[in-house]
Simulated scan of single mutants.
Amino acid sequence: MSLALQQLRIYRHDTCMLSLDCCIAPGEVVSVTGPSGSGKSTLLNVVMGLQELPFRYDGEIMLNGKPLDAVAPHKRNLGMLYQDPLLFEHLTAGENIAFAVPPAARRGQTKTALRDSITAQLDKVGLGDLYTRPVQTLSGGQQARVALLRTLASKPQAVLLDEPFSKLDTTRRAQIRDWVFATLREQQLPALLVTHDNDDVRAAGGRIIEV
């Protein structure tokens, strides 16, 4: 799996905000850094297909060698992690993850089997007994882990990260950050990280693009 941004230029009206050309390999995390207003979050919106006027772009976005430019956002097979976990507060931790499982992955699987599978995933990150816990009762670090598990449950072919660790306390931040990057490497998912934090960049361990 690879994510390629080929001669990508993003404009606000007629002004070019940023320009980059890179191919992200399986398991690699490429970090994009720059000051506020430089277009970092807009870059992720463009890759997701969520940009709106006055923003536009030229160049090509490729996932596994196939262009995404004409593909609807919900069909791009991209996972996204934001600053906030954005979990569904009316669902439990386990139900949040189950919600993201694609129909194809559910097919032929009983509700009990699906729950057992999700519980096993939660157990791997120290949350095995929290399937039925309302997400609003979880700590910030626990919510961050559930958010990543939900993202991975959707079977993405690449992951975008928009300052996903910025609201965690210092100790928890390092722990969650290392776990996220290790998981992306383990699953061989290309990832694009937007951040202004140098510790995030160093932990990602990949190429750095300054905009």
Rank of each mutant, 00 (worst) to 15 (best):
136 Q>T: 07
194 V>R: 09
67 P>W: 01
141 G>C: 02
176 I>A: 00
57 Y>A: 10
80 M>G: 05
113 A>H: 06
105 A>Y: 09
20 L>I: 13
174 A>G: 06
168 L>D: 14
25 A>F: 09
186 E>H: 10
54 P>D: 01
203 A>S: 15
157 Q>P: 11
3 L>E: 06
31 S>P: 06
67 P>M: 00
35 P>I: 12
114 L>C: 01
211 V>D: 05
88 F>T: 06
20 L>P: 12
15 T>L: 15
204 A>R: 02
119 T>L: 08
206 G>T: 00
16 C>Y: 05
56 R>C: 11
167 K>V: 01
140 G>W: 03
102 P>G: 03
190 P>W: 06
21 D>F: 09
8 L>H: 08
87 L>Q: 08
205 G>S: 08
102 P>I: 09
55 F>D: 09
68 L>V: 14
54 P>H: 04
159 V>L: 01
55 F>W: 12
46 V>P: 09
39 G>E: 02
103 P>L: 14
156 P>C: 10
203 A>E: 11
17 M>S: 14
114 L>Y: 03
73 P>A: 01
4 A>T: 13
50 L>K: 08
118 I>K: 01
193 L>M: 07
37 G>R: 03
188 Q>L: 10
160 L>W: 05
54 P>S: 05
208 I>P: 11
198 N>I: 06
46 V>T: 15
87 L>N: 07
39 G>P: 07
171 T>Y: 13
32 V>I: 12
122 L>D: 03
94 G>N: 04
140 G>C: 04
78 L>E: 12
